[in-house]
Protein backbone atom coordinates (compact mmCIF):
# COMPACT_ATOMS: atom_id res chain seq x y z
CA UNK A 1 0.00 0.00 0.00
CA UNK A 2 1.35 3.36 -1.02
CA UNK A 3 -0.95 5.67 0.93
CA UNK A 4 1.34 8.43 2.10
CA UNK A 5 -1.16 10.90 3.41
CA UNK A 6 -2.52 9.79 6.78
CA UNK A 7 -5.75 11.67 6.25
CA UNK A 8 -6.48 9.62 3.21
CA UNK A 9 -6.45 6.43 5.24
CA UNK A 10 -9.97 7.12 6.44
CA UNK A 11 -11.17 5.61 3.24
CA UNK A 12 -8.47 5.14 0.70
CA UNK A 13 -9.26 6.08 -2.84
CA UNK A 14 -7.90 4.11 -5.74
CA UNK A 15 -8.74 6.75 -8.34
CA UNK A 16 -10.54 10.01 -7.88
CA UNK A 17 -10.49 13.33 -6.07
CA UNK A 18 -10.17 14.15 -2.38
CA UNK A 19 -11.26 17.64 -1.38
CA UNK A 20 -9.70 18.57 1.93
CA UNK A 21 -9.85 21.52 4.34
CA UNK A 22 -13.44 22.43 3.68
CA UNK A 23 -14.81 24.66 6.47
CA UNK A 24 -17.32 22.45 8.34
CA UNK A 25 -20.13 24.98 8.06
CA UNK A 26 -19.86 24.93 4.27
CA UNK A 27 -19.41 21.20 3.75
CA UNK A 28 -22.92 20.48 2.59
CA UNK A 29 -23.02 23.66 0.51
CA UNK A 30 -19.88 22.44 -1.27
CA UNK A 31 -21.57 19.07 -1.80
CA UNK A 32 -24.50 20.72 -3.49
CA UNK A 33 -22.43 23.26 -5.47
CA UNK A 34 -20.47 20.39 -6.99
CA UNK A 35 -23.62 18.39 -7.67
CA UNK A 36 -22.23 15.44 -5.72
CA UNK A 37 -25.68 14.15 -4.85
CA UNK A 38 -26.18 13.42 -8.55
CA UNK A 39 -23.08 11.24 -8.88
CA UNK A 40 -23.39 7.49 -9.04
CA UNK A 41 -19.77 6.74 -8.02
CA UNK A 42 -18.66 5.99 -4.47
CA UNK A 43 -18.45 9.13 -2.29
CA UNK A 44 -17.15 9.41 1.29
CA UNK A 45 -17.97 12.53 3.25
CA UNK A 46 -16.20 13.39 6.49
CA UNK A 47 -17.86 16.04 8.64
CA UNK A 48 -16.56 17.87 11.75
CA UNK A 49 -13.17 16.17 11.56
CA UNK A 50 -10.34 17.55 13.70
CA UNK A 51 -8.09 20.05 12.01
CA UNK A 52 -5.02 21.76 13.47
CA UNK A 53 -5.44 24.66 11.09
CA UNK A 54 -9.18 25.13 11.19
CA UNK A 55 -10.55 23.55 14.39
CA UNK A 56 -12.93 21.34 12.51
CA UNK A 57 -13.13 20.64 8.81
CA UNK A 58 -14.84 18.57 6.21
CA UNK A 59 -13.46 16.17 3.60
CA UNK A 60 -15.10 14.81 0.48
CA UNK A 61 -13.65 11.84 -1.39
CA UNK A 62 -15.08 11.00 -4.75
CA UNK A 63 -14.14 7.87 -6.66
CA UNK A 64 -13.46 8.09 -10.39
CA UNK A 65 -14.25 11.77 -10.63
CA UNK A 66 -11.87 14.45 -11.87
CA UNK A 67 -13.25 17.98 -11.90
CA UNK A 68 -12.84 20.54 -14.64
CA UNK A 69 -11.26 23.82 -13.56
CA UNK A 70 -14.41 25.93 -13.80
CA UNK A 71 -16.44 23.20 -12.13
CA UNK A 72 -14.27 23.19 -9.04
CA UNK A 73 -13.70 26.95 -8.96
CA UNK A 74 -17.36 27.39 -8.11
CA UNK A 75 -16.54 26.53 -4.51
CA UNK A 76 -13.74 29.10 -4.22
CA UNK A 77 -16.15 31.77 -2.97
CA UNK A 78 -17.13 29.85 0.18
CA UNK A 79 -14.07 27.66 0.64
CA UNK A 80 -11.07 29.51 -0.78
CA UNK A 81 -8.45 27.44 1.06
CA UNK A 82 -9.48 23.90 0.14
CA UNK A 83 -6.92 21.45 -1.15
CA UNK A 84 -7.65 19.19 -4.04
CA UNK A 85 -5.81 15.89 -4.18
CA UNK A 86 -5.97 14.10 -7.49
CA UNK A 87 -5.43 10.39 -6.86
CA UNK A 88 -4.45 7.66 -9.29
CA UNK A 89 -3.59 4.14 -8.15
CA UNK A 90 -3.72 5.18 -4.46
CA UNK A 91 -1.15 7.92 -5.06
CA UNK A 92 -1.63 11.65 -4.89
CA UNK A 93 -0.39 12.58 -8.33
CA UNK A 94 -1.38 16.24 -8.17
CA UNK A 95 -2.33 18.80 -5.55
CA UNK A 96 -4.42 21.79 -6.56
CA UNK A 97 -5.78 24.94 -5.00
CA UNK A 98 -9.01 26.51 -6.08
CA UNK A 99 -8.95 29.93 -7.72
CA UNK A 100 -11.57 32.59 -7.79
CA UNK A 101 -12.57 32.87 -11.47
CA UNK A 102 -12.96 36.21 -13.28
CA UNK A 103 -16.68 35.66 -13.67
CA UNK A 104 -19.28 33.76 -11.68
CA UNK A 105 -22.34 32.33 -13.39
CA UNK A 106 -25.48 31.26 -11.55
CA UNK A 107 -23.74 31.09 -8.20
CA UNK A 108 -24.37 34.33 -6.36
CA UNK A 109 -27.64 36.15 -5.80
CA UNK A 110 -27.74 39.85 -6.62
CA UNK A 111 -28.56 41.86 -3.50
CA UNK A 112 -30.42 44.49 -5.48
CA UNK A 113 -34.16 43.63 -5.36
CA UNK A 114 -34.68 45.82 -8.45
CA UNK A 115 -32.08 43.88 -10.44
CA UNK A 116 -33.43 42.11 -13.53
CA UNK A 117 -31.87 38.84 -12.30
CA UNK A 118 -34.24 38.83 -9.32
CA UNK A 119 -37.29 39.37 -11.50
CA UNK A 120 -36.72 37.26 -14.61
CA UNK A 121 -36.04 33.50 -14.92
CA UNK A 122 -32.36 33.86 -15.81
CA UNK A 123 -28.87 33.07 -14.60
CA UNK A 124 -26.97 35.64 -12.53
CA UNK A 125 -23.56 36.78 -13.70
CA UNK A 126 -20.92 38.61 -11.70
CA UNK A 127 -17.52 40.06 -12.55
CA UNK A 128 -14.91 39.53 -9.85
CA UNK A 129 -13.43 43.03 -9.73
CA UNK A 130 -11.16 42.50 -6.73
CA UNK A 131 -9.86 38.99 -6.12
CA UNK A 132 -7.98 39.78 -2.92
CA UNK A 133 -10.92 41.37 -1.14
CA UNK A 134 -13.53 39.36 -3.07
CA UNK A 135 -15.59 42.21 -4.51
CA UNK A 136 -18.14 41.38 -7.20
CA UNK A 137 -20.03 43.55 -9.68
CA UNK A 138 -23.35 42.43 -11.09
CA UNK A 139 -23.06 42.19 -14.87
CA UNK A 140 -26.63 43.49 -15.23
CA UNK A 141 -27.48 46.13 -12.63
CA UNK A 142 -23.77 47.01 -12.06
CA UNK A 143 -24.17 46.96 -8.29
CA UNK A 144 -21.07 46.04 -6.31
CA UNK A 145 -21.17 43.37 -3.63
CA UNK A 146 -18.55 43.02 -0.91
CA UNK A 147 -17.41 39.69 0.45
CA UNK A 148 -19.49 39.86 3.64
CA UNK A 149 -22.62 40.69 1.61
CA UNK A 150 -22.38 37.72 -0.73
CA UNK A 151 -25.40 35.45 -0.72
CA UNK A 152 -25.21 32.17 -2.58
CA UNK A 153 -28.08 30.88 -4.66
Amino acid sequence: MMVRNKELQVAALKNGTAIDHIPSEYLFKVVSLLGIEHLSTRVTIGYNLDSKKMGTKGIIKIADKFFEEDEINRISLIAPSVNLNIIKDFEVIEKKQVNLPDELYGLVKCNNPKCITNNEPMQTRFHVIDKDNVTLRCHYCEMKIKKEEIELL
Binding site: C115, I116, C141, M143
Partner: peptide
Protein backbone atom coordinates in the same frame (compact mmCIF):
# COMPACT_ATOMS: atom_id res chain seq x y z
CA UNK B 1 -35.65 47.13 -13.39
CA UNK B 2 -31.90 47.65 -13.30
CA UNK B 3 -29.96 45.60 -15.84
CA UNK B 4 -33.00 45.07 -18.07
CA UNK B 5 -31.37 46.64 -21.13
CA UNK B 6 -28.14 44.65 -20.70
CA UNK B 7 -30.14 41.45 -20.51
CA UNK B 8 -32.25 42.43 -23.52
CA UNK B 9 -29.07 42.97 -25.55
CA UNK B 10 -28.09 39.38 -24.78
CA UNK B 11 -31.29 37.75 -26.00
CA UNK B 12 -31.54 39.45 -29.40
CA UNK B 13 -29.30 40.29 -32.34
CA UNK B 14 -30.92 43.62 -33.09
CA UNK B 15 -29.40 46.66 -31.36
CA UNK B 16 -30.83 47.80 -28.01
CA UNK B 17 -30.65 51.42 -26.89
CA UNK B 18 -31.13 51.87 -23.17
CA UNK B 19 -33.48 54.76 -22.46
CA UNK B 20 -33.12 54.24 -18.71
CA UNK B 21 -33.03 51.10 -16.54
CA UNK B 22 -34.23 51.93 -13.05
CA UNK B 23 -31.61 53.87 -11.12
CA UNK B 24 -28.80 52.41 -13.17
Amino acid sequence: LEGAARYASEVTDIPIINAGDGAN
